[in-house]
Amino acid sequence: MAEEPVRILVSDGAAIADPKDKRIITAWSISITAALLALIGLCVFLPDPFWDLLQFISDGILVTFQVTILSITISIVIGMFTGLGRLSQNRGINLLASTYVEIIRGIPLLVQLFFIYYGMGKFLGVGGIPAAVIAMSFCYGAYMGEVFRAGISAVPKGQTEAARSLGFSDKQTMWMVVMPQAWRTILPPIGNEFIAMLKDTSLVSILAVSDILRRGSEYAGVHFNYFETYALVALVYLIITLLLSKAVSLMEIRLNYYDR
């Protein structure tokens, strides 16, 4: 009965470390050590411009997280309904969900951002951050839909049958038996999506949103030190992504609590 939990790979987020790998020297530990040493070294020994820069972009880090967390939350909700819709027996609902996924997946995220901000901006008049959140949520919602669909489908049919045979309704079975088990396969790829999204939010700097990248550009535009600026911006993204990928892999261990 102890089947390997199904792993869903949807996007190319950061490489998630194998939770069972107990070795000390791994790609992850080398990367994080190198990145942290580089960051600390640069800020300590070359405080001008690096320490100055880091302080300048620090509020950009907050904006990046703000956009990412808002977008991921909304996209999870969209994804859950899309996934359920794709599995629905109702042909209308099914088509609606599938068409949404089909359309969104065929349009580059950057084009979606432009369309919502500049295209729809005329009618909606939304600012940079709302436009970014809307575009990112709908885009990632489609991918999340696939994650949910795969996660729900991976729950053995016998689980549904057992619940139904006890007298649970369709809905009760979904929320009390299927979903709680699907989360186990869904959460790790959601973690991946979160990391991928955090990187993708750098696109919104184009919409005048003051994220990490935008703040960096502003700094470089004044001090003309593009090499140093973008090196530091890259380091900051790298460290955040590495830490998050560790968190995802720890979460994966915790999710397997009911295994032998």
């Binding site: 009965m1 053995p156 016998g158 689980q159 049958e161 057992a162 619940a163 139904r164 045979s165 006890l166 007298g167 649970f168 309704s169 009390m176 038996v177 709680p180 088990q181 186990r184 009911y258």
Partner: peptide, 28 residues
């Protein structure tokens, strides 16, 4: 659903709910 409440079913593959304890499987 009401009819099924009166019919107990036991499957070849047990189909216990793996995310619930044994006690919770029975009390749910």
């Amino acid at each position: 659903n009401l009819v099924r409440q009166e019919l107990g079913m036991v499957f070849q593959n047990f189909n216990l709910f793996p995310h619930k304890t044994v006690l919770e499987n029975l009390t749910m």
